[in-house]
C-alpha cells in the first residue's frame, strides 16, 4: 500500500481545499475543482485513489482525536456525498457518491475506535505487515486456563448446579481480571498516543522519525493483545 506517497495529510488536506492540489475534473477536465466539486460543471469528485482515512478528515496523522470534531466533519462530508442528492445526476456521479460515502463511513468507524485507529495507522506506515504472533507467556497461560474452565463448564451436566455455579464464579473473576488488564493496556496505548502526537507536530513531509517508529513497535505489541482479550471476553460472556 503506497499511501504516504508525497505529501503529508495536512498538506493535502481535504485535497480540494486549495486550488491546484486536486487533479483536474474527471468530467470536464477543468482545473477549477474545489472541495470535491468541480466549479465549472458541478460534478462530484472522487477521493484520490491513494487517500487515507486521516487525510479525508484533515486531522493529520494524530492519534488523539477529538470525537466531537470528528463527528462534525463526518456529518459535513456525509451531507456532501449523500447518494440522495445525486439521484437526478449522471450514473457516473451516482457511483462516485456511493463510493465516497462507503469510504467515508469506513473511515469514520475506524477512526472512532482508538484500537482500530492505531492499527490503521500502523498499517498505513508499515504496509500490510502482520501483528506479532508471539504473546507474553502470562497472558497466554491465563487464556488457556480460562478456555479450559470454559471447556469444563460445557462438559458439566446441566443438573449439577453447584459445580456449574462454582465454575461461573471462576469465570466471572477471570473476566474482571481481563477487563482490568484491558484497561491497563488502553492507558498504555493512550500514553503512546500522547508521545506520538508530540512528535507529529514537528514532522515534515513523510519522514516519520526513528522515535516514532519505535513507538509504532510498542503500539503493535499492545494491539496484538487486543484480539485475544476481545475473544476471551466474548467466550466468557457467551456462557455467563
Amino acid at each position: 500500500m503506497e499511501i504516504l506517497s508525497q505529501k503529508t495529510g495536512s498538506e493535502r488536506g481535504p485535497f480540494f481545499e486549495k486550488p491546484g492540489v486536486a487533479p483536474p475534473c474527471w468530467n470536464c477536465a477543468s482545473n477549477n475543482v474545489k472541495m470535491y466539486n468541480c466549479v465549472s460543471c458541478t460534478s462530484i469528485q472522487q477521493f484520490l485513489h491513494d487517500t487515507d482515512y486521516f487525510t479525508i478528515f484533515n486531522i493529520g496523522y494524530t492519534l488523539h482525536i477529538d470525537p466531537e470534531n470528528l463527528e462534525k466533519k463526518y456529518y459535513e462530508l456525509s451531507r456532501r456525498f449523500h447518494p440522495d442528492y445525486y439521484q437526478n445526476r449522471s450514473k457516473a456521479e451516482q457511483e462516485i457518491s456511493l463510493e465516497n460515502t462507503a469510504f467515508l463511513n469506513k473511515a469514520y468507524q475506524t477512526l472512532s475506535d482508538p484500537f482500530k485507529r492505531c492499527a490503521y495507522l500502523v498499517q498505513l506506515i508499515e504496509g500490510d505487515k502482520n501483528l506479532p504472533t508471539e504473546v507474553p507467556a502470562a497472558l497466554f497461560e491465563e487464556i488457556f486456563e480460562i478456555q479450559e474452565t470454559l471447556e469444563t463448564l460445557r462438559d458439566t451436566d446441566e443438573s449439577d448446579e453447584a459445580a456449574r455455579s462454582a465454575l461461573k464464579t471462576v469465570l466471572q473473576n477471570a473476566s474482571e481480571h481481563m477487563l482490568q488488564f484491558e484497561s491497563e493496556e488502553k492507558a498504555q496505548l493512550d500514553h503512546l498516543f500522547t508521545k506520538w502526537d508530540a512528535l507529529e507536530t514537528g514532522r515534515k513531509e513523510r519522514d516519520f522519525s526513528d522515535a516514532q517508529k519505535k513507538l509504532l513497535v510498542q503500539m503493535k505489541q499492545i494491539l496484538s493483545h487486543a484480539g485475544y482479550i476481545d475473544r476471551i471476553l466474548q467466550d466468557i460472556n457467551a456462557v455467563l
Partner: peptide, 13 residues
C-alpha cells in the same frame, strides 16, 4: 510452542 493469531484471537499450544 504457544502461538496465537492476533486478528481472530485463536490460540494454539
Amino acid at each position: 510452542g504457544v502461538v496465537g493469531a492476533p486478528e481472530c484471537g485463536d490460540v494454539m499450544k
